[in-house]
Simulated assay, not measured.
Amino acid sequence: MISADNAGDNTLDETYSYSLTSNLLSDGAGTLTWMAPTVCRASQNGATVTLAYGPDGAQVKKSWDFATLSRSQCRD
């Protein structure tokens, strides 16, 4: 677990947790579930997004309740 203290303003403090393989699991606001080394499900406030990554680590697919995007559409 890693924490960031924002100079006395505790409303801005952040806490991150990671798996043994260095995958982010929580950023204090949402959670990430790694279903495979290249597939992650992110959840926050009842909304869930599933992200898939290629062998080069680039995002290749993004799926949520409203749509599924392919690699060329995933660039944020």
Rank of each mutant, 00 (worst) to 15 (best):
R41Y: 04
T68I: 01
P37G: 08
L25T: 00
D76R: 14
V60A: 00
G30P: 00
T31P: 06
Q44A: 10
C40K: 02
T50N: 02
P37F: 10
A58T: 07
A7C: 11
G57L: 03
T21C: 05
S70N: 15
Q59G: 02
A36N: 13
T15D: 14
S72E: 13
Y53E: 02
A29Q: 14
G30T: 02
D76H: 09
D9W: 13
M35H: 09
D65P: 02
S3Y: 13
Y53D: 01
S22F: 10
Q59T: 05
E14G: 11
A52C: 03
T11D: 13
G8C: 03
L24M: 05
C74D: 00
A4Y: 15
T48K: 06
A29T: 10
A58Q: 13
S22A: 14
V39N: 00
L20P: 14
Q73D: 09
L25N: 00
N6Y: 15
V49H: 11
D76T: 07
P37N: 10
G8K: 04
Q44W: 11
T50G: 01
A47L: 07
S19R: 03
A29V: 09
G28P: 06
S19H: 07
V39I: 08
L24G: 02
G54T: 04
S3W: 15
W34C: 00
V39K: 03
W34H: 00
G8T: 01
T50H: 05
C40G: 04
L12Y: 08
W34P: 02
G8Y: 09
P55Q: 14
A47E: 08
T33S: 09
R75K: 13
T21Q: 14
A7H: 15
L24E: 05
L32G: 03
A67M: 12
K61E: 09
Q44S: 12
T11A: 14
A29F: 09
N23D: 13
D5W: 10
I2W: 15
L69C: 02
E14L: 15
V60P: 00
T31D: 12
C74P: 00
S43H: 01
A52V: 01
G46D: 03
D13C: 03
G28R: 06
S17Y: 09
T11M: 12
P37Y: 08
S26D: 13
R41F: 04
V49A: 07
T11F: 15
S72N: 11
T33F: 10
G54A: 06
K62Y: 06
A67S: 12
Y18H: 02
